[in-house]
C-alpha cells in the first residue's frame, strides 16, 4: 500500500508505503513499513520506491564523470578535489594509461596543482577511498572556459529528459557545456553568453523541483539572446 503520490515532496521519517516493495536510494525499511530519509520527491516505478533528494553532498560512484581540481602532486600520482566529502586519488598509470616506473616521470609535466581535469571514477571502496582514471576519449585536462558549481543533486535536471535541457542550454545559450556528476559544469563561449548560461544554471538549481522548467529556461535564454 502506497501512502504518497508520485512526485510528492516528502521529509525525513515520513512513511511512504507498507508492504512488499523494493527500497532504493533515499528510503529505508523498518519491518514492513518504508520511510523517507531525505527531503525530496518520491519516485515510484513498479515495486521500486526511491526518493530523489533535493539537497545533499556528492558521493562518488564507479563510472561517474567528474570535474576535479588538482590539490596535490605526490610521487605516484595526484590528489584531486572532486567536490565531495572525500578527496580522490589519481595514479599516474591510470592517467597516462600505460605502465610507469615509479620515480621515473616528472608528474608536474602532466598535471600541476590547480589544474582542472575531467576524469572518470574508476573505483570506490567501502571506506570511500576513491580512485580516478583519465587518458581515455573525452577525459583529460581542461583549458579555458568557466567552471560553475551547483548542487550535485540537481545535475539530472541540467541534463533533462534525454538531454533536452542540455541541448536548450547549448543552442539557445550559444555555449558548449561539459556537465559532470559531481555538480561542476564547464562552460565555453563568449563572455556574454557564458554569463547568460550561468544565470540559467542558477535558475535551474533554484527551481529544479518544479515542472515546465525547460520551457521557461528556453524562454529566458531566447529573450536575452539579442542583448548580447
Amino acid at each position: 500500500m502506497i501512502m504518497v503520490e508520485n512526485r510528492e515532496l516528502v521529509v525525513p521519517g515520513q512513511q511512504l508505503a507498507e508492504g512488499d516493495y523494493l527500497v532504493s536510494d533515499g528510503v529505508f525499511r523498518e519491518g514492513k513499513r518504508i520511510f523517507s530519509t531525505v527531503v525530496g520527491l518520491v519516485d515510484i516505478k513498479g515495486r521500486r520506491i526511491r526518493v530523489i533528494p533535493l539537497q545533499g553532498p556528492y558521493v562518488p560512484k564507479e563510472g561517474d564523470l567528474v570535474i576535479g581540481v588538482i590539490v596535490d602532486v605526490h610521487p605516484l600520482g595526484w590528489i584531486v578535489d572532486i567536490n565531495s566529502p572525500y578527496l580522490a586519488n589519481l595514479l599516474v598509470q591510470d592517467y597516462l594509461q600505460r605502465k610507469v616506473t615509479p620515480g621515473r616521470e616528472n608528474l608536474k609535466r602532466f598535471l600541476q596543482v590547480k589544474d582542472v581535469v575531467v576524469l572518470r571514477v574508476k573505483r570506490v571502496d567501502e571506506k570511500k577511498q576513491v580512485l580516478l582514471e583519465g587518458g581515455k576519449p573525452g577525459l583529460g585536462k581542461l583549458k579555458g572556459g568557466k567552471l560553475v558549481e551547483i548542487s550535485p543533486m540537481k545535475i539530472p535536471r541540467v541534463l533533462g529528459k534525454k538531454g533536452s535541457m542540455l541541448s536548450v542550454l547549448q543552442k539557445s545559450g550559444r555555449c558548449r557545456l561539459l556537465v559532470a556528476n559531481n555538480g561542476r559544469i564547464m562552460i565555453w563561449g563568449s563572455d556574454g553568453d557564458v554569463a547568460r548560461v550561468t544565470d540559467a544554471l542558477k535558475k535551474i538549481e533554484r527551481e529544479a523541483h518544479t515542472t515546465g522548467l525547460t520551457d521557461r529556461i528556453k524562454l529566458m535564454l531566447e529573450e536575452t539572446k539579442e542583448v548580447n
Binding site: V11, P12, G13, F35, T37, V38, Q55, M153
Partner: peptide, 11 residues
C-alpha cells in the same frame, strides 16, 4: 540537518 540533505531516520 534535513535541509543539508543528510539522510535521517526521523527528525
Amino acid at each position: 540537518l534535513a535541509d543539508a540533505g543528510i539522510p535521517m531516520r526521523d527528525l
